[in-house]
Computed example of a mutant assay.
Amino acid sequence: MPSRNSIFSLSGLALAGAILMGVMLVRPIRHEFAAAAPQNNPGAKQSGQTESKSAGKSSPAEAPAASGSIEKRVEDFLRKWYAWGPDFQLKIGPVKPSPAGDLYEVPVEVSARGGSDTALVYVTKDGHYMLRGDLQDLNSDPLGDTMRKLNLQGAASKGPADAKIVIVEFGDLECPSCRQLDYVLRSVLPKYPQVRFVFKDFPLETIHPWAMTAAITGRCILQQSSDAFWKYHDTVYDNQDLISPETAYNKLLGFALQAGASEEKLKPCIADPKTQELVRQSMAEGHALDVTSTPTTFVDGRRLVGPDQALLEQYIQFDSPH
């Protein structure tokens, strides 16, 4: 499920294709840019010509003025376009050059009523257009780059260690959508024995109060037995609705013992701060890959958000020998 309440559902707007979901959005914002331009007088004209010639060199001296102007115009445009009134807090910037060279990259964070979302927009250097999309370097190997960022050592996994197809899930044991994905995987993975599946912790602490406890307990079980971990993993999902913040520790401990874990080893491990640090390292890895919701799955580097069985199998079949 989302890591935060969707700001778009809070606003009652269907903006999935506009800001966060990566569908291209191109809007002219020239009128705001023109309004911010300096008055035309000989001195200003001469200065403006000098700045124009050096603009392509991205002079540090002129960046703050240009950045401030762009940030304000982006905020004004987004507020008007999506009817984001005073109840919506926007943080725009800092503006920086994008990898494409002729665009500025502008981070946008919008929050309201306890929820927040983030995205990147791009603005042409003349201040005329804003767009939202993913910039891809056609000379790179994006899937390989993603896989190289995934550290699979020490993570829970099942399937061939030398598998050509690797599925990596960033999941949360308290997340209902992750439970749905688990049910999907229970039916899908047996059909593809050549696939390796890896589970990495990504507990959403702000909305799931016992997710971190579940992740820590799972880590400790994994240190004892991989088979015991997967039994625990499935049992937690099957009994998700029976667990509360007040009963989580005892319930999870009980599931761990049922799975075959040793209580004598389990309790000290759960209490050890180093175990939580392992979970946070997994979370940091997810953040570095722009994981913001669970489940987020990578199938040989291809990102899949949510329990979409059809797309999951499409990815697997595409990479399977024909």
Rank of each mutant, 00 (worst) to 15 (best):
S3T: 12
G12C: 11
M24S: 10
M24D: 11
H31L: 14
A37C: 09
N41P: 11
S52N: 07
K53G: 05
G56N: 11
S58E: 11
P60F: 07
P64K: 11
P64C: 11
K80H: 15
D87C: 07
P94Y: 07
P94W: 10
V95N: 08
D102F: 15
L103P: 12
P107D: 13
V108Q: 07
V108S: 08
E109V: 15
V110T: 13
S111P: 14
G114D: 12
Y122W: 13
Y122G: 06
T124C: 10
D137I: 06
L138H: 06
N139T: 14
S140N: 09
R148F: 00
Q153D: 14
D172R: 07
S177Y: 12
Q180G: 00
L181W: 05
D182K: 03
V184M: 02
P203Y: 01
T206G: 07
I207W: 06
M212T: 11
D227K: 06
F229S: 11
W230C: 04
K231F: 06
K231I: 06
H233L: 00
V236W: 00
V236M: 03
V236K: 01
D238F: 06
Q240Y: 02
L242C: 00
L242F: 01
T247C: 08
Y249D: 09
L252T: 03
L253D: 09
A256I: 07
A256M: 04
L257S: 10
E264D: 15
I270S: 05
I270T: 01
E277G: 01
V279S: 04
R280M: 09
G286M: 10
A288K: 08
T297N: 00
F298Q: 00
L304H: 07
P307V: 02
A310R: 07
I316W: 00
